[in-house]
Design a protein around this nucleic acid. Structure first.
Lengths: 153, 153
DNA sequence: CCGAAAGTATACTAAATCTATAGGAATTAT
DNA sequence: ATAATTCCTATAGATTTAGTATACTTTCGG
C-alpha cells in the first residue's frame, strides 16, 4: 500500500507552493529547480510531474526567463486527493472498489466478496482524508506545529 | 495506493479458509488447488503465498496424501492487517510514518513536514480498519449480506 | 515397500511499472 | 541575440510483480 515517488514528490511540491509567501503576484511563482532543491527531488523528474499537474489544471506556469509554476487555484480549493489521483490514479486499493475506475475482480460473486467489502471501507477511509484535506489545511497544520516548537507550552 | 496481487490473493485465500465449514478437524483443511480454483488464482503463485503465511505462523499444513493448509489459529484471532503485513510489508503509504519499518524521508524537517502529518493519518486510518478486522468479522459480514440477498426485507 | 498425492524450497524469467535522465523545441525577459 | 525557463518525448535503468520450472520431502493407501 505504498505511495509512489511520483505522488510523493508531486504532493510535496504542491505543499511547498501553497506554503510559500507571495510577495507580488496572486500566488507564488517558483521554478522547478527551486522546488527540487528545497525538497530533494530530482529536477528532471519533478519537471514531468509538474507538467502533469499543469495539464490537469492544478498548476499554471509561465515560460521563459523569470518563469515558473504557480497554483491554478487558491490552496483551500485544492485537495490532496485530487493531486494524488492525477499522479497515481485511483485511491482504491483494488479496482473493484474504485469509484473512478471500477473494474470487476476475479472473485466469484462481487456482491458477497468479503475482501471487497473491507477494501471498500479502506478506500473510503483514505478518500475521506485526502479529499477533505486541502493545501490550505496542510499549511495551517504545519504552521501550528512550528509555532508549538517555538513556544513549547 | 494499490494492494498487490500477492496481498489480494493471500487475503482471499485466508478468508476462504476461515469461511469453509470444517466437518472433522479443528479447522478446515484445504488444498492449494482447491483454493486456487475457487478464487481464480494461479496455483503455483498461491503456493508461494501460502508458504509465506505458514512461515509467518498464520497457517499450518499437512504434507502428503490428503494434506493441505489450515488456519493456525481461530479466525477471530487473525487480523487482515497481520496477513497483509506478512505479504506486502508495512501498511504505511510512506516509510517515514511506518510503525514497523520507519525510515527517514527526504524532507528537510520531518517534524514539520506536512505530507508526513497527513500520511500519518492515512496510515492510522488504514491500520485501524485492517488491524481490527478479523477473519471472523469478514465471514460474519459476508453471511449477513448473503442472508439479506435471500430475504431482501 | 511402492507409488501417487501433496507440500517445501529455490531458482529463474518475462513483463510491467517506476524512477530518472537526456536532449531538443518553444517561449520569454533583457 | 542570448540566456533562462518551461514543454515535450523518448528512452534507459532499476525494481517489482506475477508467474513458471524443477527437484526434493513427506505422507498415506495398498
Amino acid at each position: 500500500m505504498r505511495l509512489s515517488k511520483r505522488g510523493e514528490y508531486g504532493l510535496r511540491a504542491m505543499i511547498v507552493l501553497a506554503d510559500t509567501p507571495n510577495p507580488g503576484g496572486p500566488y507564488p511563482v517558483m521554478q522547478i529547480k527551486e522546488i527540487a532543491q528545497r525538497e530533494n527531488i530530482p529536477a528532471k523528474f519533478l519537471e514531468q510531474i509538474l507538467l502533469a499537474l499543469k495539464n490537469a489544471g492544478l498548476l499554471q506556469s509561465k515560460m521563459g526567463v523569470g518563469g515558473g509554476y504557480y497554483l491554478a487555484r487558491p490552496p483551500q480549493e485544492i485537495t490532496l486527493g485530487h493531486i494524488e489521483r492525477v499522479l497515481d490514479g485511483p485511491l482504491a486499493p483494488i479496482r473493484c472498489v474504485s469509484q473512478m475506475a471500477y473494474e470487476p475482480c476475479g472473485c466469484p460473486d462481487a456482491e458477497t466478496c468479503g475482501l471487497r467489502m473491507v477494501m471498500g471501507d479502506v478506500r473510503n477511509a483514505i478518500a475521506d482524508i485526502l479529499d477533505h484535506t486541502t493545501l490550505a489545511d496542510v499549511t495551517k497544520r504545519v504552521h501550528a506545529v512550528r509555532a508549538m516548537k517555538q513556544k513549547p507550552e
